[in-house]
């Protein structure tokens, strides 16, 4: 019993790590721009495929491939803003149009991947094989890497937002765009790199997802749905709430899988979600308006 609980918590932390990375970029963009970026799923897929390309064609170097993912997704985030989001901002029905345009971007990304790499599953070679056994609990090294890598990025993002000048500008625009403009913050610029940072986080989430699962052109769809769910749970726009929400969901999901069955894990999460929306519509860390 104890080993099952411990194993479930470990799996919960692994799932939570991936969910947190997938959701944090989405919530950041919502917090600053008040838009739902549905291209996020496409960027998760791109991250996984970029690392696969890096490893397949750059001699299996994880570090270079990882840097490649970060660089390319970050740059493509700027492209997304300049080519899809910014032209629609400030126009009538911009929220709906941006939602549709980003969803279309995700579909385009998926289809470009099909054209470029085909639809067959692909797998990223393991970063590390083997496992660590502590009594009756076994943790494989892949899972340990995920549990270690995700917090680095999450803490890094929090540090950036709290301590660095451009991060503080992001928070300022998120809190009051007009006020930020009065003190000389270029909100267009902030929007641009907020989307780029969101894309980067999605790319990193794609790498971790690709490491334990398999690559397919539509692989970003499920994490996007989970990320939306977590974003609402944590409080729309709250980065801290999203991170806590992701780990809570991860652990509940894993406990449900272990003790009730895999079939019931998702229904349980959705029942919880509905209850939370009824009792606390602003989410765990959201501010009541």
């Amino acid at each position: 019993m104890f080993s099952d609980i411990a194993s479930a918590i470990i799996i919960g932390l692994v799932l939570g790590s991936m969910y947190a990375l997938a959701a944090v970029g989405l919530t950041l963009v919502w917090g600053v721009l008040k838009i739902l970026n549905f291209a996020h799923g496409g960027f998760i897929t791109l991250g996984a495929y970029f690392v696969w390309v890096g490893i397949t064609f750059l001699g299996g170097n994880y570090v270079i491939s990882f840097l490649l993912v970060m660089g390319l997704t970050f740059l493509l985030g700027f492209v997304l803003n300049a080519g899809v989001i910014r032209p629609l901002q400030g126009r009538p029905e911009s929220e709906t149009n941006i939602f549709i345009a980003t969803l279309a971007t995700s579909i385009i990304i998926e289809n470009l991947i099909i054209v470029g790499f085909g639809g067959r599953y692909k797998s990223i070679p393991e970063m590390a094989s083997g496992s660590l056994t502590l009594g009756s609990i076994s943790i494989n090294f892949q899972q340990m890497i995920i549990m270690a890598v995700a917090p680095v990025f999450l803490v890094g993002l929090m540090y950036y937002l709290k301590k660095m000048k451009s991060g503080m500008a992001v928070r300022a625009v998120a809190q009051d765009a007009d006020g930020a403009a009065i003190v000389g913050i270029d909100s267009e610029r902030v929007y641009s790199y907020t989307i780029a940072i969101g894309a980067l986080m999605a790319g990193v989430a794609g790498v971790l997802l690709g490491v334990i699962f398999y690559l397919s052109p539509g692989m970003g769809g499920d994490p996007l749905v989970r990320a939306l769910f977590i974003m609402v749970l944590g409080g729309m726009g709250s980065v801290k709430g999203t991170i806590y929400g992701a780990y809570i969901i991860g652990i509940i999901d894993a406990l449900a899988r272990y003790f009730i069955g895999m079939f019931w894990a998702s229904p349980i999460l959705f029942v919880m979600f509905i209850l939370l929306l009824l009792l606390r519509p602003q989410g765990l860390f959201g501010v009541k308006v």
């Binding site: 699962f213 499920d222 894993a254 899988r257 272990y258 069955g261 895999m262």
Partner: peptide
Amino acid sequence: HLPSAKVEDWSS
């Protein structure tokens, strides 16, 4: 019995 084919982890 699982709801879909997408399984990230079989530990349970």
